[in-house]
Write a protein that binds this DNA or RNA. Structure first.
Length: 154
DNA sequence: GCCAACGTTGGC
DNA sequence: GCCAACGTTGGC
């Protein structure tokens, strides 16, 4: 089982939307970045755990934990000319973009703010803090454990 | 809304 | 295959 962090803009789809989805499960799609795609396609598997991170909003930070349900599959949007994220270079034989389904495990009682993460020396090497713009990224087990301890603190 | 960082595209 | 131009992300 591996650990990941997925970013999302809560104004578009946040942890509350995931909580209200049928079976608290939703497709995590619309990822159009090759590095993120590679993780989705090659390394993210059923049972993996995911930190749900809220970006571009008033309360930036980690909002809760989800679980990957099933294996990744081609993001349907890329095949639909009516979709804003249609990709003419994709075909059923050679899809370019992938997605997974995730199920909510729990919402944090409060957001663990980005500001808090930045203040913790053990987290300076988190991909989140090192590489600003990656929307699907790995989390080290020790980072995961530390973040879980922050859930009820600060 | 600003703007820095950085990923992607396309000309050569 | 380089790299400038461009577009997007995302914190503040």
């Amino acid at each position: 089982m591996n650990y990941w962090l997925f970013k999302t803009e809560p104004d578009v789809f946040g942890i509350d939307d995931l909580a209200q989805a049928p079976e608290q499960t939703a497709r995590w799609d619309e990822i159009r970045n090759f590095q993120a795609r590679n993780y989705l396609r090659d390394e993210i598997h059923a049972g993996d755990r995911v930190l749900i991170y809220h970006s571009s909003c008033r309360q930036v930070g980690i909002a809760g934990i989800a679980e990957v349900v099933g294996e990744s599959y081609p993001d349907p949007g890329q095949f639909d000319p009516a979709n804003a994220l249609f990709d003419a270079r994709s075909s059923a034989d050679a899809p370019r973009w992938f997605c997974v389904d995730v199920r909510l495990r729990r919402r944090f009682a409060r957001i663990v703010p980005l500001k808090t993460l930045k203040q913790i020396p053990e987290l300076v090497d988190m991909v989140l803090l090192r590489q600003g713009r990656l929307s699907v990224q790995p989390v080290r087990p020790e980072e995961w454990r530390l973040i879980e301890t922050l859930e009820n603190g600060s």
